[in-house]
């Protein structure tokens, strides 16, 4: 209190007294009201790196003594970090596999707490002038795979083999995608190729923005990338679902899950049942499931949870 008074005297002399006095008071009041502090660490998804960092910033604004450190090393690293105890928070762009979940339960005696924190979509993109508007699942598979597990009859190698692009003056279709160890590659393989094999001619880029840039500059190409990387240079292709309806990419269709290649993003927490969460972790979860936290997800380029899901998740 004493130091506060001296600084007040000093400030009055320098002429900013009123403003800074209020600031000082409010800062001390804030820390008094919420004595939440600590360092949170999280290990996991590359895709979610920007999102987690923004949540971390917002959290530090709410509670200046909380500090969130995030190591973006890929979804595959989250379960192992949770199991070894290096971290208690594991953001993942896919659901944990049964093996990963079992390993965690074996180690701790309870399953990890699984929270859906936002929605994302994989988007098939073409050059902005390409007349292609929609694709069926079989066509996507016939474009990207050698195996055609989804049931297409013949491979599609040239733009002339698609009815919508008969007149598109580029012959062979150039394929662009992510590198084979990334979660995006795995998810596309699983969901769009029905678990089949990619063609060896797929250009594998080290990041989603590189894929979008490559498709945006070359009219004869097609590729896939995450929803939040799209630029005006590329066009998202609508996907035709099992009922034969063309689903355009929009926030609503991703949020409701109608868009065929949409997914949840997860946060796994090492939370022993019947024990309250540490206050810092609780503050983070409160932020994530608040309207403000979901707005942050939107500004990070993802799609917020629907209201019902948000309410459900908020009462973990």
């Amino acid at each position: 209190m004493n130091s506060c008074a001296t600084s007040f005297v000093f400030l009055r002399r320098s002429g900013y007294a009123g403003l800074l006095w209020v600031l000082l008071l409010s800062a001390s009041a804030n820390t008094l009201a919420s004595p939440v502090s600590g360092t949170l660490s999280a290990v996991g998804s590359n895709t979610m790196a920007g999102l987690i960092l923004r949540w971390g910033e917002a959290l530090s604004q709410r509670h200046p003594d909380i500090n969130l450190q995030f190591q973006a090393s890929g979804s595959a690293n989250a379960p192992s970090a949770l199991i070894t105890g290096t971290t208690r928070l594991g953001p993942m762009s896919r659901q944990m596999t049964d093996t990963e979940r079992r390993a965690f339960t074996q180690r701790y005696g309870y399953p990890p707490l699984e929270l859906k924190v936002a929605r994302d979509a994989l988007v098939v993109i073409v050059h902005r002038h390409n007349p292609l508007a929609e694709l069926t699942r079989q066509q996507v598979d016939a474009l990207f795979s050698t195996t055609r597990e989804c049931g297409a009859n013949a491979a599609i190698n040239r733009w002339q083999e698609l009815p919508a692009t008969q007149d598109w003056p580029f012959g062979a279709i150039a394929l662009h995608g992510r590198n084979s160890a990334s979660g995006t590659y795995g998810l596309f393989q699983q969901r769009a190729l029905c678990g089949g094999e990619f063609r060896p001619t797929l250009s594998q880029h080290p990041g989603a923005s590189a894929v979008v840039a490559a498709v945006g500059e070359s009219p004869g190409s097609i590729g896939y990338a995450g929803y939040h990387h799209l630029t005006p240079n590329v066009k998202a292709v609508s996907l035709i679902n099992a009922e034969g309806q063309a689903i355009a990419l929009s926030e609503n269709s991703v949020q409701s899950g109608d868009y065929p290649l949409s997914r949840y993003l997860y946060l796994y927490v090492n939370a022993p049942p019947e024990q309250p969460l540490p206050t810092a972790e609780k503050a983070l979860l409160d932020l994530i499931f608040s309207p403000e936290g979901q707005q942050i997800a939107r500004s990070a380029g993802f799609v917020p949870l629907s209201e019902t899901v948000r309410q459900q998740q908020a009462h973990w």
Binding site: P200, L202, S203, Q204, H205
Partner: peptide, 22 residues
């Protein structure tokens, strides 16, 4: 980074160093 076995100068390739890095 296309893992192709082609000799064409107009087609890509994937090198060992790049594969390790990615």
């Amino acid at each position: 980074n296309t893992a192709l076995l082609s000799a064409s100068p107009f087609e890509g390739m994937r090198s060992m160093a790049a594969a390790i890095a990615i």
